[in-house]
Simulated scan of single mutants.
Amino acid sequence: MKTEFKKIKTELEETLLSDPDVASSAETIKQAATLIEDALSSIRIDVVKNGFEDEPDEIAFFKSYKPELLSLKIELIYRYNLKLNEPVGTRETVIKYYEAEIKSIQSFFRMNSFHYQYFKNNLTHMDAVYFVRNAGPLALPTDDINDVDPKFSTPMSLLFAKFKGYESVQQFSLQQISSTGNSSSGTEPKEAKENMRWTGDSINIVELAYGVWLTGQLNNGNASLNQIVKWLEINLHVNIGVVQRRFIEIERRKRLSPTKYIDQMRDTIRQKIDRGNS
Rank of each mutant, 00 (worst) to 15 (best):
T90L: 09
L76N: 04
L70T: 01
G165S: 04
G241Y: 10
L17Y: 14
P87Q: 12
L40F: 02
K9F: 15
L158P: 00
Y166G: 00
D144R: 08
S42G: 15
L225A: 07
L256P: 00
F172Q: 05
A161E: 08
F61C: 04
A209P: 01
S179N: 11
A209I: 03
I234D: 15
T93D: 15
D144G: 02
N277Y: 15
Q244V: 11
K96I: 02
K66C: 05
E68S: 15
R275I: 01
N226W: 14
I74R: 04
S202E: 14
K164C: 10
F152N: 04
V206F: 08
Y97V: 07
V169K: 00
K9W: 12
S278I: 04
L256V: 04
A100G: 08
K7N: 11
L76M: 10
T28P: 02
D201V: 02
L218Y: 11
K120L: 14
E13F: 10
A223I: 09
T215I: 06
L158I: 06
D201A: 09
S173H: 04
A100L: 12
E37M: 12
L140F: 12
N122K: 13
F160T: 01
S157C: 15
I74A: 03
D38H: 12
E249L: 13
R133T: 00
V132Y: 13
K73S: 08
N112K: 00
L17V: 09
N220S: 08
K162R: 12
K103F: 08
I145T: 11
S113W: 14
K151V: 01
L12M: 05
V47S: 03
I43S: 05
G241T: 03
I29A: 13
E27N: 01
F5G: 00
R245M: 12
R246E: 15
E68C: 03
E167L: 13
D267K: 14
F5R: 02
I262T: 10
I205W: 06
K254E: 13
N226P: 01
S153Y: 07
R110I: 08
W231L: 09
R79P: 01
P56R: 06
F62I: 05
Y80P: 00
G136M: 08
S185H: 11
V47C: 06
T142Y: 09
K272N: 09
E188K: 11
P189G: 11
I43K: 03
N219T: 04
I177E: 03
V206T: 06
V169E: 01
A161N: 05
N204A: 09
K260G: 01
M1I: 05
A128R: 15
V132D: 14
K193N: 14
I29R: 11
A39T: 05
R253T: 02
K162S: 04
I240T: 02
K73T: 03
F108Q: 00
I228P: 01
N146C: 08
T15C: 15
Q170D: 05
I203T: 04
L17G: 01
